[in-house]
Amino acid sequence: MTALWLTVVVLIALALALVLAPLFKAHDAIGTTQQALARRVYAEQLAQLAHDQDAQALDPADRAQAVDDLQRQLLDEASRPSAPTRPEKPWMGWGVALVLSLALPAAALLLYQQVGDPRAAAALAAAPAGSHERAGQDLQQLVAALAARLQAQPADVEGWTMLARSYEVLQRYDDAVLAYRKAIELAPGQPQLLADYADALGSARKGDLGGPAQEAIDAALAVDSQHPKALALAGMAAYQRGDAALARARWQAVRELMPPDSEARRSIEANLAHLDAPPAPSRPSPAAHISGTVSIAPELRNRVAPQATVFVLARATSAGPMPVAVLRLSAKDLPARFVLDDSVAMTPERPLSRFSSVIVEVRVSASGQAASQPGDLYGVVRDVTLGQDGISLLASEQEK
């Protein structure tokens, strides 16, 4: 990445040199007078007369008359008062040079940020669920273009990192894991990459931070024992194993690294408060669930392969676009009864029972990915109250 920016700086310097040099030279030419211009014109026309005579296009008598006329014109110009051909304002060249020196690099940077930065894919990927119809197809094309570019330029570690994060926002966690592995191969021992890789592994395994995710967390902390994300994930991994003491130590350590009024610190404090809360009952409250039947509209049924994946999702408007609970079914089993509760929560710190009202969505995906894809079937039921039964969830719309 450093080499890229050095190249950009050199190219901008060369461009400035080419643009500014004539402005600085213009100051040296200010003293040009009308007499000097007349002498130059006289010399050029005299040379042209000699050329015409040599080419036998002009006889000697005519040439002599023409030379005589030119000499009279030159003497007439020499008798006039000397006047500069342009006002002496050297500051104008320097002023224009200063403006260009500032504007050209700034314009180049702004243009790069808009169309050259792979982060654009990640930024577009953060659109909420309600914008699927507007931007889903464009987003898929951007991410696909970035993936194709990386196949041709596989040594771009930042590109692989941006691709992985884009996949995460699209909930394509298996693809995110592969992209992070590519980035780590190119830049081993980077704690941020290792922590992000562990997070993606956990998401791909429905929140489980054991096994390879734990190994990545340990590797990140071995490089930087105070890395905030690695510490937070280590606390969650310990909590999942039932090691409350280690979870507390990890979360207390990361809390001290967070700004006092930050959202991240409040989240860590909520986790610590959860550790201090009385033990939860071994079985969730009967009201802490949502149930109903899910099916595909009859007129669309023949468009769905039996092996297509069916996702039943619960989203809370206060928790952003990420689902709080996900249930995976198969199209061949529909219609089917479903139950969403804390056992299918995306993360333990955000159980379904925390939210009083949610949006329930069904998505039939041929690709097996929960993120919106053109051709997917979907259906939504809004304002579902926790504890509500008998919901009829119908996949009756198709993504464009």
Results as ranks from 00 to 15, higher is better:
188 P>G: 09
247 A>L: 06
198 A>V: 01
182 K>S: 12
191 P>N: 00
288 A>G: 11
213 A>L: 02
183 A>R: 03
263 E>M: 13
260 P>E: 15
262 S>D: 14
272 L>A: 04
235 G>F: 02
267 S>K: 13
208 D>G: 06
201 L>C: 03
195 A>M: 03
209 L>W: 07
257 L>S: 09
193 L>C: 00
222 A>L: 11
238 A>F: 02
204 A>K: 08
239 Y>T: 03
255 R>M: 10
248 R>K: 13
279 P>C: 01
281 P>N: 10
180 Y>W: 11
184 I>M: 04
236 M>H: 09
254 V>A: 05
249 A>Y: 14
225 S>W: 01
220 A>E: 06
244 A>F: 12
237 A>L: 08
191 P>W: 02
273 A>P: 04
190 Q>D: 15
264 A>P: 12
263 E>R: 10
244 A>T: 09
276 D>T: 05
201 L>N: 09
229 K>S: 01
228 P>M: 04
198 A>R: 05
269 E>Q: 15
272 L>W: 06
175 D>A: 04
182 K>W: 06
237 A>T: 05
283 R>W: 06
257 L>D: 08
206 K>P: 02
209 L>N: 01
271 N>K: 14
258 M>G: 05
241 R>E: 07
257 L>M: 12
223 V>M: 00
214 Q>D: 00
215 E>T: 08
216 A>Q: 07
228 P>Q: 01
212 P>M: 02
210 G>S: 13
205 R>T: 10
235 G>N: 02
235 G>T: 06
268 I>V: 15
264 A>W: 14
226 Q>K: 07
195 A>Q: 00
278 P>M: 06
255 R>P: 03
258 M>A: 15
277 A>C: 09
279 P>R: 10
264 A>R: 13
257 L>W: 13
218 D>A: 11
229 K>Y: 04
